[in-house]
C-alpha cells in the first residue's frame, strides 16, 4: 500500500488546486459579467473593447497566455507572484468564455421584457439589474457550471509555472517513486472527485435560483 504515503502531499496539492480554481472562478465571473454586459449595453467603444478582450483570450491558447504572463511580461518589467499569475491568467481566460455566456443570456431575454420595463419608466440601470439580469442569470447557470469544471481542469496547467498544485505534486512524487500508475490514478480520481463536488454545488445553486415554481423556462410570454 505504497500509495497511502502519497496522500498527504497530494491532499496539500489539491487544496492549492481548489484555491486557485475558486479564486479564478470568482475573478473570472466578475470579468465575464463586466465584459458580457459591456458587449450588450456598452457604447461602440466599450463594446469593441470588450469584444477584443473576449476574442484575444478565447482565441489564444491558455498555455500560451500562461507562459506569456510568466516568462515574457517580466522581461518588460511587469511581474507577479506565480500564484497570482496563475489565478489572473486563468481568470482572464475563463472570464472571456464566461462573457460569451453572459452576452448570450442577456440577448435571449425577450424584447417584451424590455418594453414592459420601459412602460414602467425603469431607467437603463434598473432594467438591467432588476429585470434583465435576474432572468438571464438563471439561463446562464448550466453553462457556468460547465465552465467551472473547465476551470478546474485547466488549473492543472499552472503546475507548469511551478505552482505546487495537485498536478505538480503528482509529478514530484512520480519523479521520486517512479510509481506512475499509482500516482496518476490517484490524481485523476482526485480531480474527478473535485469535479463532482463542483457539479453538485452548481446544481444546488441552480435549484436555489429556480426555487419554487417561480421560474420555469418558458415564462416569457
Amino acid at each position: 500500500m505504497q500509495w497511502v504515503s502519497y496522500l498527504p502531499s497530494l491532499a496539500q496539492g489539491a487544496l492549492v488546486t481548489a484555491w486557485i480554481t475558486l479564486a479564478a472562478i470568482a475573478v473570472g465571473a466578475v470579468l465575464a459579467f463586466v465584459a458580457g454586459i459591456a458587449r450588450v449595453e456598452g457604447g461602440r467603444a466599450v463594446s469593441t473593447l470588450a469584444l477584443c478582450y473576449t476574442e484575444l483570450f478565447r482565441g489564444t491558447s491558455l498555455l500560451v497566455q500562461l507562459f506569456w504572463f510568466y516568462y515574457a511580461l517580466p522581461l518588460i518589467g511587469i511581474s507577479f507572484e506565480p500564484v497570482a499569475t496563475g489565478i489572473l491568467v486563468l481568470a482572464l481566460h475563463v472570464g472571456a468564455y464566461g462573457s460569451e455566456i453572459v452576452r448570450g443570456a442577456l440577448a435571449s431575454v425577450s424584447v417584451q421584457q424590455f418594453e414592459a420595463a420601459r412602460a414602467l419608466n425603469f431607467g437603463r440601470m434598473h432594467t438591467l439589474i432588476h429585470v434583465t439580469l435576474p432572468q438571464a442569470i438563471i439561463e446562464m447557470l448550466p453553462a457556468f457550471g460547465n465552465l467551472a469544471i473547465e476551470t478546474l481542469k485547466l488549473s492543472s496547467l499552472v503546475s507548469l509555472i511551478s505552482i505546487a498544485d495537485l498536478t505538480f505534486r503528482a509529478q514530484s512524487i512520480r519523479n521520486l517513486t517512479l510509481d506512475s500508475a499509482g500516482v496518476y490514478s490517484l490524481t485523476l480520481v482526485g480531480y474527478f472527485a473535485m469535479s463532482l463536488v463542483l457539479m453538485l454545488v452548481m446544481r444546488l445553486i441552480e435549484r436555489w435560483a429556480r426555487r419554487g415554481a417561480a421560474f420555469p423556462r418558458a415564462a416569457h410570454s
Binding site: 417584451q112 421584457q113 418594453e115 414592459a116 412602460a119 414602467l120 419608466n121 425603469f122 431607467g123 434598473h126 432588476h130 429585470v131 435576474p134 432572468q135 438563471i138 417561480a214 421560474f215 415564462a219 416569457h220 410570454s221
Partner: peptide, 28 residues
Amino acid sequence: HVGMVFQSFNLFPHMSVMRNVAEAPVRV
C-alpha cells in the same frame, strides 16, 4: 404620465405578483 397594458402581459417572471406591482413605484 403614460402606462401600458400589453397583449402578452409581459409580467416579470422572476418577481412575485406583489413585487411586479410594487417594484416600479419603489425604483422609479
